[in-house]
Amino acid sequence: MMKAMRVLVRHMRVFMKTWKHNLMYNVAEPLLYLSAMGFGLGLFVQEVNGVSYIEFIAPGMIALSGMYSATFECTYGTFVRIYYEKTFHSMLAAPVTITDVIWGEILYGAVKSILFGLVILGVIAALGLIKSPAVILLPLVLGLTGLVFAELAICFTALVKNIDYLNYYITLIITPFFLFGGLYFPVDALPPLAQTLNWVNPLYHSVELCRALCLGNLAPGLGMHAGILIGMAALASPFPVKLMERKIIS
């Protein structure tokens, strides 16, 4: 497990070479949503919960970037490293275990969430949409978001044999998370059942935390959102290694 850092260092060296191509889907997409919704739909929506529409949705884009970064890295990225680039085999020939390799993957997903989330934060700050110094805690939220989504993504990747099946995860799990996760409208607008279901949506908790930190609404409920994300990360933590071990070690 300690040697997961060596795996992370390996990934970061590759990242230093490839980060420019990575910016596209991790950063461009949330910014496109922000501009379309914020500047377009925002014209028809006066205020949400006492703030302008673009102020309401902007923090959610940070969480969205965090979710996407870890998700894409630990689905498509991991799959390519296993089957196409055979990176897992080369790493496992070195003195590391499958546990190290998998935690290296998860940490890499979390680090990418922080980095790309911060790029979005920079853009939002430049637009003058940050209202509170509490935003300094944002990297923690992004790291936690990345951890949860990286763990989930690795579990799913361990279960599929064909790269096309990863689309199911994106369309059936990730897309509903961001459509109903309180990014574009407050979740209390949803029917009661959907509101209840949102409690198992990690992005919802991440969005609430990001919004509170950006706007300075530091209500006591925030601890609960953070606690739930930590709980999710802890609960999911044994499964990525267990499932991947079955796949990689014959």
Binding site: K3, R13, T87, H89, A93, A94
Partner: peptide, 29 residues
């Protein structure tokens, strides 16, 4: 494994890295 070297059947080099970087990065593991 620390006392062993492995040359697998298929080349699994890091295609994003240069020749020297491939070796340096692997040494890190």
């Amino acid at each position: 494994k620390a006392q062993m070297g492995v040359v697998p059947q298929e080349d699994n080099l890091d295609t994003e890295l240069t020749v020297l970087e491939n070796l340096e990065t692997y040494g890190g593991l």
